[in-house]
Write a protein that binds this DNA or RNA. Structure first.
Length: 424
DNA sequence: TCTGGGGTCCTAGGACCC
DNA sequence: TCTGGGGTCCTAGGACCC
């Protein structure tokens, strides 16, 4: 059994916690450069403003209705998010933080603690409201994550649920009725393209999709949609991912407030993006063996000459060292930069990421071909306790690695006897 | 004048191997 | 004269998510 807890209008709600005067007023939070709306209060949604709408197109509407626009403050939102997730961990030990404003909870054994999943949902809502000031909705009593998402949607849209929709409290008939009222586009994993194709097949609401034959769907849409249909039928295909896996790629990019022309300006931006990206890389204890850099002109200005290009630069050796990564990325930038264009956006990507510990093990294996028994043991422990739990820890070996990596030896040196159950 | 910034997974097709 | 059958790995592109 799953529950999905999702904060309402998250960024706007965070702002309201610290500025109660915004309560009840139409508020939007804007993206970088105050470009697009990335969060809307209910009052703004009621005016028909879409997610991602360009702010400059809304100026008239904003004047008419007194819409208040705020620049985004991601530090604040991240902090508030942590508070919410901490509270949720009190309710279930098994939680997957799915995004900044929502989490899945596994709630199987908890029905002994609460009278119903609905009661549990209300308790969650109240506690988060009191402790953080944030409003949340809960979809609960769902046999799959996809159903939990839908239940949450109902909790948000249908006032009769009072913010908590417990699917187990509904009869099969009631469920069918509610699902029939929902557009397929509301289903997790069904976006614009797939909606259109499903519609052309006569499948327009969730109930119809739920009754579709998974094998048929697979034929038309592939294995991902097949899973979605199975999930809608209550067969759970998506597990709870409690430990967030390390990122497979890291991006840092920005649009410029004003167009950029010279190489020097681009170089400065790209350098700072790379420093940010490299920081993220080290925070997750990875190394990367290729970097990508890209630049674009403004695609919305059709009257301007357009140019966009990107290049991937392989590194001779995996690294997390800022200087090396910056050097590589500037090398790439030089090769794609063309003078005479008005650049609007630039960015870097770190690719081919490997956990530093795994990288060390590979090197060690190269240098010590007869150590397979040791490596097997380490693999076993890493499988048991999670990746990167153990690595090779003797001082001599560490020194050799340090020499190889020149700077910053990644710190994966847990000693075996510090592990829980080390003896067994 | 002004249009965000991150991520993931799957598939098809080509190169290459024996 | 006749030209198989089984793989892997990589990449680009498309779809989706928040």
């Amino acid at each position: 059994m799953f529950a999905l807890v999702d904060c309402n209008n998250f960024y706007v709600s965070c702002e309201r916690v610290f500025n109660p005067k915004l309560e009840g007023k139409p508020v939007v939070v804007l993206s970088n450069n105050d470009g697009c709306c990335v969060a809307r209060s209910n009052e703004v949604k009621a005016l028909g403003v879409q997610m991602g709408a360009p702010w400059f197109q809304l100026k008239d509407l904003a004047r008419q209705h007194g819409i208040i626009a705020l620049s985004s403050n991601y530090c604040l939102y991240g902090d508030m998010s942590n508070r919410v997730m901490t509270i949720l961990r009190d309710f279930s030990p098994n939680i997957e933080v799915y995004s900044i404003d929502e989490s899945f909870l596994q709630i199987d054994g908890l029905i002994g603690v609460w009278k119903s999943y609905g009661e549990m949902g209300q308790a969650i809502r109240q506690k988060i409201r009191i402790w953080t000031g944030l409003p949340v909705c809960v979809g609960t009593g769902a046999g799959s994550k996809t159903l939990a998402k839908l239940a949450n949607h109902l909790a948000k849209k249908r006032p009769e649920f009072d913010g908590v929709c417990d699917l187990t409290s509904l009869t099969e008939m009631q469920q069918a009725e509610y699902f029939a009222s929902l557009d397929i586009g509301e289903v997790w994993g069904v976006g614009r393209q797939i909606s259109a194709r499903l519609r052309s097949m006569g499948i327009e609401n969730v109930q119809q999709l739920r009754q579709a034959c998974p094998k048929q769907i697979r034929l038309h849409f592939g294995v991902v949609m097949e899973r979605t249909v199975n999930e809608l039928q209550g067969m759970s295909c998506l597990e709870l991912d409690e430990v967030a896996p390390a990122n497979q790629q890291i991006i840092a990019s920005r649009s410029f407030g004003a167009p950029v022309v010279t190489y020097d300006e681009l170089r400065e931006s790209v350098t700072s993006y790379m420093l940010r990206a490299a920081e993220k890389l080290r925070r997750q204890h990875s190394m990367c063996s290729a970097v990508h850099v890209f630049i674009h002109t403004n695609r919305f200005r059709e009257q301007d000459a357009q140019y966009s290009n990107g290049v991937t630069v392989p590194l001779t050796e995996a690294s997390s060292d800022s200087r090396r990564l910056v050097a590589a990325v500037l090398h790439g930038l030089k090769s794609i930069y063309r003078p005479g264009y008005l650049y609007k956006k630039a960015g870097v990507m770190l690719l081919d990421l490997t956990p530093a510990a795994v990288r060390q093990q590979l090197l060690f294996r190269e240098e010590n071909p007869r150590s397979d028994k040791l490596m097997q043991t380490m693999d076993l422990l890493n499988r048991e306790y999670g990746r990167n739990t153990v690595s090779l820890g003797s001082a001599g070996i560490q020194q050799r690695w340090a020499a190889r990596f020149e700077s910053r030896t990644p710190r994966y040196t847990t000693h075996w006897d510090e592990l829980p159950h080390a003896r067994s």
